[in-house]
Write a protein that binds this DNA or RNA. Structure first.
Length: 152
DNA sequence: GCCAACGTTGGC
DNA sequence: GCCAACGTTGGC
């Protein structure tokens, strides 16, 4: 089992939104970056766990835990012209983009802030803490995972 | 295949 | 709102 970090803007989608969905489950759509897509297509498996990280907001940081309940399959929003993530080159025959289904596991009592991550010797090398990082899905090591759980 | 220009991300 | 960093695009 592997660990991941899923980034999103909280106004668009956050841990509370996920908790309100039927079965507390939703698809993680809209990823339009090849590296993140390849993680979902090749590496993210059912049963893997992930953190939800909120970006572009007042307090950037980790807000909770999710679990992968369905591994990579075509992101159908790619050929939906009404979607914000519409890609005119895509169709059901040429899906290109991938999504996974995630289920709510837990919301932390507080946000584990980016500032804390950067200042923690175990966490400072996390991809999300690197300057200029824009990757929306990143691997998390077991050591990083456990360290954050202890902080929460 | 190179690389400049451009658009987007995301912390501050 | 600013701007550095990055990924993508497109001319050559």
């Amino acid at each position: 089992m592997r660990y991941w970090l899923f980034k999103s803007e909280p106004e668009t989608f956050n841990i509370d939104d996920l908790a309100k969905r039927p079965n507390k489950t939703d698809h993680w759509d809209g990823v339009r970056n090849y590296q993140a897509r390849n993680f979902m297509r090749d590496d993210i498996k059912k049963g893997d766990k992930g953190f939800i990280y909120q970006s572009s907001c007042k307090i950037p940081g980790i807000t909770g835990i999710i679990e992968i309940v369905k591994p990579g399959y075509p992101d159908f929003t790619a050929w939906d012209p009404t979607s914000d993530h519409y890609d005119p080159d895509c169709s059901p025959d040429n899906p290109r983009w991938v999504m996974v289904d995630v289920r709510f596991v837990k919301k932390f009592n507080r946000v584990i802030t980016l500032d804390e991550i950067k200042n923690n010797p175990v966490l400072e090398n996390m991809v999300v803490a690197k300057r200029g990082n824009r990757l929306s899905i990143t691997p998390v090591t077991e050591r990083e995972w456990k360290t954050i759980l202890k902080l929460a």
